[in-house]
């Protein structure tokens, strides 16, 4: 049997981590949790995940972007698919939040909360 694919979850909300972890484990993934941006970046190096899911608003409103930038500059973050999670509607007309000009590229942006089926479907599409 193949080794389980590894997913790294970075979010400062412990409960959200727990809820999402349960769904991903049910989907057959090995899940690693980081509660802030910095440990997320460190863990990406030590764990070597196949995919990382990053919350946008953590310590600051745009901490998620910082994390993605950092992940994208070195291995393994350079290579793997990244999913950005956000509870705010980035497309909305009324957000006072302004994304940085040099928006780091992620493979997918998903809105919180996310249906279990959808989460597994998207993750499956990205890493099988």
């Amino acid at each position: 049997m193949d080794a389980k694919k590894k997913v790294l979850l970075i979010d400062d909300d412990k409960d959200f981590l727990m809820a999402t972890k349960l769904i991903l484990e049910k989907g057959g993934y090995e899940v690693f949790l980081a509660e802030d941006g910095k440990s997320g970046v460190d863990m990406a190096k030590s764990v070597g995940p196949n995919l990382a899911i990053i919350d946008m608003m953590m310590e600051t409103w745009s901490e998620g972007f910082n994390v993605v930038s950092k992940l994208r500059t070195s291995d393994p973050g350079k290579q793997i698919p990244l999913i950005m999670l956000s509870a705010v509607d980035l497309q909305g007309p009324y957000q006072s939040f302004e994304p940085p000009d040099d928006l780091p590229t992620v493979d997918l942006v998903l809105h919180k909360p996310i249906k279990a089926d959808d989460l597994l479907k998207y993750v499956g599409r990205l890493i099988g």
Binding site: F16, A19, I23, K26, W61, A87, V88, F97, A116
Partner: peptide, 24 residues
């Protein structure tokens, strides 16, 4: 923006828990 984050976060988390509950 601050209030919106503070009010949405717990709600989102509860909804996510329900999702995981349904899966489990």
């Amino acid at each position: 923006t601050f209030v919106s984050h503070e009010m949405r976060s717990p709600l989102v988390t509860i909804q996510q828990y329900i999702e995981s509950l349904k899966v489990i």
